[in-house]
């Protein structure tokens, strides 16, 4: 074991735990994480406090064991099959909570991963719509943003892939009952939409990050409660799971700009 294995929690580990917390209370649904930090977080949530979650290997299998990110075929205890078609069926059936990335997000949770600049003539092409529209309209969605800046937390996204609360509000009672942007986790803090008009609220700030710094990295008016708690630290057992079980090679650290 190296020295860091017993050291205090670092920012990446605080973020993993904050991401894992988004699945608390979800029960027996598909906890789907896109990218290393959300994947580690979903696995940590199941191992720590939400034991009925279904976790995929990111390809086509549900795995029942505590699998490290990048774990090979021999390490997987398969409990089910989740090819892409089944993912689409599962999400339309609502038995899923996904954590995706966002290249831009606004105060109502509208998300863009399609392109920067006008869609007709993008300055920077990104992934495209992917599953954002279908995910957000059907079930709970959270977002993981490793580098919060005013260019990411924007007044208005250039292209709406994931649907936010202001738009969902115009789509009738079914959508209102099923659409949920639960959390946004960044390298600076945790955000939710638990306000009367569902505009984004600062839920907690990570240790060592001030509210002023957060406001300085936000391009819209953020709801800030009178008292902003600190994001909780990982427990000793959570640190052990992250470091020794789910991500012994430190893949998660690659998501953070040094």
């Amino acid at each position: 074991m190296s020295e860091t294995d017993s050291g205090p929690a670092t920012l990446d580990e605080i973020c993993v735990v904050a991401c894992a917390e988004t699945w608390r209370g979800d029960g027996e649904i598909f906890a789907s994480g896109m990218g290393p930090v959300p994947m580690i977080a979903a696995r940590l949530a199941r191992a720590s406090f939400e034991p009925d979650l279904l976790i995929s290997d990111g390809e086509a299998y549900f795995v029942a064991n505590d699998l490290r990110v990048g774990g090979g075929p021999d390490e997987k205890l398969v409990e089910g099959w989740i090819p892409f078609r089944q993912v689409f069926d599962t999400l339309a059936g609502g038995r899923r909570h996904v954590m995706m990335g966002a290249s831009q997000i606004d105060r109502f949770g509208n998300e863009n991963i399609a392109c920067i600049g006008p869609w007709e003539k993008p300055k920077a092409q990104l992934l495209g719509m992917r599953g954002g529209p279908g995910n957000t309209i059907n079930h709970a969605t959270s977002f993981w943003i490793p580098s919060q800046t005013k260019r990411v937390f924007v007044p208005a996204v250039d292209v709406v892939s994931g649907v936010g609360y202001d738009r969902a509000a115009t789509l009738g009672p079914w959508v209102a009952a099923h659409h949920e942007i639960r959390r946004v986790i960044t390298n600076m803090g945790v955000y939710d939409f638990e306000t009367p008009d569902h505009s984004m609220r600062l839920r907690s700030r990570h240790p060592g990050v001030s509210v002023d710094e957060i406001v300085g990295a936000t391009g819209f008016e953020l709801v800030i409660p009178a008292s902003v708690p600190e994001t909780r630290l990982p427990t000793g057992e959570e640190l052990r799971l992250i470091r020794a079980v789910f991500d012994p090679n430190g893949v998660r650290k690659g998501e953070f700009r040094s």
């Binding site: 339309a92 529209p133 279908g134 309209i137 059907n138 709406v160 649907v163 959508v175």
Partner: peptide, 13 residues
């Protein structure tokens, strides 16, 4: 019929 696309810019573009 599907709900995917509703409210998103897929419908605008």
């Amino acid at each position: 019929p599907t709900r995917a696309g509703l409210g998103s810019d897929v419908m605008r573009i």
